[in-house]
């Protein structure tokens, strides 16, 4: 069992240790501050940052989603709700009538983006979504398309 060492006079004064501790604190006062002044300045998100998922249109304004429901199927927390309907005016013939993402459920895992065969859903850099009610966090198709915006296709699968 270790025995306590007898402190000598200087150590018993505690003053040198207080000065040592305070000098350390004071040194830190003059170091560069690394607090992020959040609402005014923001971190630049990494390219792989996963935020809120959103639907995109191609450069012709067509909703790229064809309502195949793969994202609905793969979504781990079951946050996506899709209802398909027939679309007459382009060769795909099928599109989403209802496309809701419940952002309360969404865990921003990116499986929907990964699984999408049409590259119609992408994770955006949007993440400040706090809202006072549940209803405000269920995003419908129009809201999602507005958030996603336009993403031009490198090639046109559907002519």
């Amino acid at each position: 069992m270790p025995t306590a060492r007898q402190l000598n006079f200087v150590e018993r004064l505690y003053l040198p240790e207080i000065v040592r501790g305070l000098s350390h604190t004071i040194r830190h006062l003059f170091r560069p501050k690394f607090t992020l002044q959040y609402p005014e300045e923001r971190d630049v998100p990494l390219s792989r940052f996963r935020g809120m998922p959103a639907l995109v249109r191609d450069e012709n304004g067509r909703t790229k989603c064809v309502a195949c429901k793969l994202c609905e199927f793969v979504c781990p927390p079951v946050a996506i709700l899709i209802e398909a309907h027939e679309v007459a005016d382009h060769p795909v013939e099928k599109g989403p009538k209802v496309f809701d993402i419940n952002m309360l459920r969404c865990i921003m895992c990116g499986y929907c983006e990964e699984v999408c065969p049409e590259e119609a859903i992408f994770l955006t850099e949007k993440f400040e979504l706090a809202a006072p009610s549940r209803a405000e966090l269920v995003f419908n198709k129009e809201q999602l398309l507005e958030i996603g915006g336009v993403r031009p296709d490198p090639y046109h699968k559907w002519g």
Binding site: D43, L104, C106, I107, M108, F127, E128, P132, L137
Partner: peptide, 13 residues
């Protein structure tokens, strides 16, 4: 009063 989505939310959120 306030729901914060995210899993987990970023500190900024």
């Amino acid at each position: 009063d306030m729901y914060v989505p995210g899993c987990p939310p970023r500190p900024e959120a």
